[in-house]
Design a protein around this nucleic acid. Structure first.
Lengths: 145, 145
DNA sequence: TAAAATAGTTAGCCTGGGTAACCATTTCAA
DNA sequence: TTGAAATGGTTACCCAGGCTAACTATTTTA
């Protein structure tokens, strides 16, 4: 007998691929990729962050984030902000970074608005809550393992 | 101003990585990966399918699915069923495939049940409907591009 | 103050996406 | 009815973006 939660997670996986494909297609026009985009999103909305903060927030390992950040730095979208602790590198968006984010945001907005059409704000908020909840439970599970 | 739908899709991306990480960790104990697991899931629940059907359902290209299917065949979990059309290869689970699916299912169930704890069946069904809806809209968007 | 912890990097691996080009077979239209 | 187009599948090869292991530099702590 097929359980509802099994369907739920299968559908989650099914949705991911076409979403990422289209996202990358749109980002590609600006020379960006998903992994870079989520870093821009984070820095634009939450302000400066260290590599460890970014890696932990996005659930990837430090070397993965090092590479993503390096690419964004090469593109001129990121710069270091000096801190007391000489080990850490706190990063923030450059002017170019802010303006490329805002420009790309328009393209992505058009896409996201289109595909979420017909779903009320309440439902969206409810879904966000649900996803956050699951994510927290995964973190808890990881710690217990 | 940060929009609700922007948050929604960012949270979606944020949830994907830790979920896939844990899924792969559990599957790894049985020598499997996410891409293979979703094929087992499909064949177990929906019965035999051709490569094109699988690829289209999971939104990947044919060569990607060819590779995934080949690995499952090497593991002895898949076999071809003869059809009229000599071009196509319709695949189904072998006995070993069925029993490995059922065995692994237990591990995954334990994980999925734990992390969806506290979310009612109604909410889950609602979320499934929502994700299916978005997926359809992405397909529509792709066709219009 | 020496050892442990933390921030970040480099090197090298692997999964699993993709495209291009191809073969075999089937379908369709002139 | 048959030649062209469409379809199912494969091979070869490229690339993003995950990972671990091992390292350096700095800070914290016992």
């Amino acid at each position: 007998m097929i359980q509802t939660f099994q369907k739920f997670f299968y559908q989650f996986l099914l949705l991911y691929r076409p979403f990422e494909n289209q996202l990358n297609a749109l980002l590609g026009k600006h020379g960006l990729y998903r992994a870079q985009w989520t870093v821009l999103y984070y820095l634009f909305n939450f302000g400066p962050a260290t590599l460890v903060e970014l890696a932990s927030y996005q659930s990837v390992e430090k070397p993965t984030m090092t590479r993503t950040v390096q690419r964004l730095k090469e593109l001129g979208y990121l710069e270091a902000v000096p801190t007391k602790d000489k080990r850490e590198k706190r990063m923030q968006l450059t002017e170019a970074g802010v303006s490329v984010y805002q420009e790309v945001r328009l393209t992505i907005d058009a896409f996201e608005e289109k595909i979420i059409e017909g779903i009320s704000e309440e439902e969206q908020l409810e879904a966000i809550r649900l996803m956050k909840d699951i994510q927290q439970k995964i973190t808890k599970w990881e710690m217990e393992m």
